[in-house]
Structures are given as structure tokens and as C-alpha cells.
């Protein structure tokens, strides 16, 4: 039994069992299902993730107000050209944007850990597994680790933007994705934990300020930057960087910071960019749409 990342690591050190197998065993006991069933369920979700990361790359998705319509294809086109970050990071961002765009347009996604942050994990899994030539089983095992870390964050903190701000949604997603990336790259348990901790540190205090209350802006950019946060945190950890503050304490800090955020900055659209003049203008446009619907 584990409730923290440290307990997971401790069990790994004591038994020599790989991290994904400890998490797997816990799920088998919890749900009363076999290893094969866990992997079948993971695969089903992974397939939805892959589809959402690719769907908007060449086809803009229509949505209410259209604030992020066409972002993914715009970035995908650019990824093939001369750029500052190069094709790897640009394709990664394009896929994260695709997930956000699909979500905003009422397309099918897999919440990971939430719908608003669902672009991050698929983009990281696809990019990093491509780089390392990972097998499907390796990808699903990395997904297992990501979900296991997500469960610890859910248990000891929150993954709800209304409760903890964007750091709880896109921050948690980046922490989970960073853990998955290090797993795919073959890093050890300590590195996996460090990567997650670094990703959380990087966005400590990030607020949730959705324009017009829609899951569009800044959500899509937070998904793109969340995916980049995940891979850079993974590389920092793989290089041997340590968080110094244990990851469980980073998770606790994130929770406490989230609680201290004023309500205006927790998914209420009452602060941040949402209440800037341009943000208010979009809210007004949405309001007009709502009123016209009522008259129907």
C-alpha cells in the first residue's frame, strides 16, 4: 500500500519491483481485475488520446466563439519550417494544441487528469515514444506510471481548477507526463519522481482564468507549455538534477498554494486575462449567444 510517491519509491527500493508493476498490482487489487484487463483498459484510453492529439493537426475544429480554432494546424505547419525550438518541441506543442482544440469543439477526449488539461499527456507520450522507439507495451507502462502519480496528486492535493487553479490541472498533467517521459527514456524511480516534482515547481501558483468561462483560452497555450514543461522537467531529471524539496512536498505545496488563490483566479472567469477588456468582450459575445438561444 502506498499513498505518497516516497512510499512508492520506498517499496521499489525494498522489493526491486519496477514502479509500473507496483502501481499495476495496486490497481489489480483495487478493481479486482487481471493484469491483462488493466492493460486493455489503458490501451482503450491511449487510443482515444492518440486520436485527439492528431485530429486537429491538419483540420481546424469548429467551436463556440472559435477562440482557439486552427491553433494546432497553424503550429503543425510551422513545425516543418526553420524554428527556434526545432521540430521536436513544435510538433509536441502542435499535438497538445490539437487535444485542446478537439476538447473545445466537443470532440472525443480522455480526461488526463481533467478535460481542460487533456492535451498534455497524449502529446508527451507520442513525442517521447517516437524518439525512443518505444513498444506499445512500454508506452502503456509509462501511462500506468503517469496515472499512478496522478492518483497520488488527486489523493493528497487536487486536480480541480476550481479548487487549485491551473497548477492543479495543467501542472498535475505536466507532472504526470514528466513521470511518463522519464519512464520511456529508461530513467530510474528517483528520476521519475524528480521530473514530476520539477514540473510542479515550474508552475506553482498558476491561476485558472478562462476567457468567457470557456475551456479555450488560455487553456490551449497552457496545454502546449505544459507539454514542454513535462519534457524539459524530464530532461532535467534524467541529467541528474534533483528537486531537493521531495516531490510529495511539492504536491502539498501546490495544494496549499491553490487553496490560497482567491476565488477570482480559480475557474470563475472573474480574474486574470478573463477580465481584461478583450476578455470581457468575448464574454459579452457569448452572453449574446446565450440570450439568443433562450429566445429560440
Amino acid at each position: 500500500m502506498y499513498n505518497t510517491i516516497e512510499e512508492l519509491l520506498e517499496r521499489q527500493r525494498r522489493t526491486g519491483t519496477p514502479m509500473h508493476r507496483i502501481i499495476l498490482q495496486n490497481e489489480m487489487n483495487l478493481a479486482g481485475i487481471t493484469e491483462k484487463e488493466v492493460y486493455t483498459r489503458l490501451k482503450k484510453r491511449y487510443e482515444v488520446m492518440v486520436a485527439s492529439a492528431k485530429k486537429a493537426l491538419y483540420q481546424p475544429q469548429s467551436m463556440v466563439l472559435g477562440l482557439i480554432e486552427g491553433q494546432a494546424s497553424c503550429q503543425q505547419l510551422y513545425a516543418g519550417k526553420q524554428s527556434i525550438c526545432g521540430p521536436f518541441l513544435n510538433e509536441l506543442m502542435a499535438m497538445a494544441l490539437s487535444g485542446s482544440e478537439v476538447n473545445a469543439s466537443m470532440g472525443r477526449i480522455c480526461a488526463a487528469p481533467t478535460a481542460g488539461s487533456s492535451g498534455i499527456l497524449p502529446a508527451v507520450l507520442l513525442s517521447v515514444s517516437k524518439r525512443y522507439g518505444s513498444s506499445e507495451h512500454e508506452i502503456l507502462s509509462a501511462l500506468l506510471v503517469a496515472a499512478g502519480f496522478g492518483a497520488v496528486i488527486t489523493k493528497n492535493a487536487t486536480v480541480s481548477g476550481a479548487e487549485g487553479g491551473c497548477q492543479a490541472e495543467c501542472g498535475a498533467a505536466a507532472g504526470m507526463a514528466a513521470a511518463a517521459a522519464v519512464t520511456l527514456a529508461g530513467g530510474d524511480g528517483e528520476m521519475v519522481a524528480n521530473a514530476c516534482g520539477i514540473a510542479l515547481m515550474n508552475v506553482m501558483g498558476l491561476v485558472c482564468d478562462p476567457v468567457a468561462g470557456l475551456v479555450q483560452l488560455p487553456c490551449s497555450y497552457r496545454n502546449a507549455s505544459g507539454a514542454v514543461n513535462a519534457v524539459l522537467s524530464a530532461d532535467l531529471a534524467l541529467a541528474g538534477q534533483r528537486t531537493m524539496i521531495p516531490v510529495d512536498q511539492c504536491i502539498d505545496a501546490m495544494y496549499r498554494v491553490g487553496k490560497k488563490l482567491p476565488g477570482e483566479l480559480r475557474e470563475t472567469a472573474l480574474g486574470g486575462i478573463a477580465t481584461q477588456p478583450a476578455g470581457k468582450e468575448y464574454a459579452k459575445q457569448l452572453q449574446a449567444l446565450t440570450s439568443s438561444k433562450k429566445e429560440d
Binding site: 477526449i109 488526463a112 487528469p113 478535460a115 496522478g150
Partner: peptide, 21 residues
């Protein structure tokens, strides 16, 4: 850990909101 992996990864759903959609 008493939280299932599939409560973290999921639901598979139509966006944009798990509560509102």
C-alpha cells in the same frame, strides 16, 4: 492507494467539460 488509475485517466468523453458536458 484507493484511487483507481481510471478515475485519473478518464472519463473518455466529449469535451469540453466533464461536469457540464
Amino acid at each position: 492507494m484507493n484511487i483507481s488509475l481510471f478515475d485519473v485517466l478518464g472519463p473518455v468523453m466529449i469535451g469540453p467539460s466533464s461536469s457540464h458536458t
